[in-house]
Design a binder for these strands. Sequence first.
DNA 1: GCGCAAGCTAGAATAATATTCTAGAACTTA
DNA 2: TAAGTTCTAGAATATTATTCTAGCTTGCGC
Lengths: 190, 190
Amino acid sequence: MKQSKRDILAGALQCFMANGVESTKIADIRDVSGVSVGSIYHHFGNKEGIVVALFLAGMQDHASMQEAALASATNVEEGVKSIVRCYIDWIAQNPDWARFVFRYRSLVENSELAEQNEAHKRQHFQRLKLWFQPYIDNGSIKKLPFEVYHSLIIGPSQDFALRWLAGKTRGHLPDYRELYTEAAWQALKT
Amino acid sequence: MKQSKRDILAGALQCFMANGVESTKIADIRDVSGVSVGSIYHHFGNKEGIVVALFLAGMQDHASMQEAALASATNVEEGVKSIVRCYIDWIAQNPDWARFVFRYRSLVENSELAEQNEAHKRQHFQRLKLWFQPYIDNGSIKKLPFEVYHSLIIGPSQDFALRWLAGKTRGHLPDYRELYTEAAWQALKT
DNA sequence: GCGCAAGCTAGAATAATATTCTAGAACTTA
DNA sequence: TAAGTTCTAGAATATTATTCTAGCTTGCGC
């Protein structure tokens, strides 16, 4: 990726997190990134294009980390737990990016540019399904509608992470890593 | 509340959910609600003011429903379960309002006008704490940092509800009411 | 019922901001 | 190296939020 594009994204994330997408002006991004208004439009089409690009990059970064973690797990328990750990770790390591992704998720999902996101998500989901299916079939974890697993595994840490990212918690997210990891496993094990 | 104010809120919710807050123009709200631009600004100050009002009303509606449910529960298990049921029911009964609340939560939380929300939330949270504390003390449920309970109780249904509201699930949210209710209880019981 | 104050309403005027346009600079590659 | 392509800058334009002002309505003391 071109350096100027990278600069635009970095500057935009900075502005978006400081003042929100709505109140950051294209001129703000120009000032922070040093790239002209014309270039910004050349690369991203419009403000939403910047938001979508930032969002997709975040999702993909997390997804690949998750798949790597899953690949080295050798049983369901480790699989489930590695997903939770990876989730918490990604958020703890990229808090601003995570705030951005949570905050503007629906903006992206309701955008015209969302098909790319959908496609990636479907593929990722498909790979997760393949990994877990044998364990579902052999009764190592509860048999449930597939769409429910995600919520049982990630739901609790997601809720907490949101409040942690907003600075609304006493405890530090990583300190609860094992708590949520264990809770996810307890929710699924037979 | 004045009828014109109500009309503005109803029209705004309709517009916001059809096209998103960013792309609904004040003029759109005027067209749908039949109330002039001047009146809209008189009542709500600016577009964000409308968003905040709509958000607060939703939160308070749900909170009072939740407190009513809790008041008629006579033991912890019923208390925990009634919170989950109430949560799912409110979302299933007010899907558009729920979509709005989820989608623009962070917009409101990052707004100047958010103190009112914070105050209400703290009070509500305090009342929940009072209700649960005796059961925590006598060991009817796990002893955990207080801030973790919310995520264990609501997290899974929240995650599923978000996908249900986005039309991304096969199953119907209310069909999983007992599944999530039971899961929450299993996560907390000793 | 009358008059006045407060709150409300309409739509025009203004200001802020996103987006487009144009001309040219900098690469790419045959 | 020259044609083609991509990129850049900043001015011009279009869109949209917000403010302003003048008039309308409602409630209330007399």
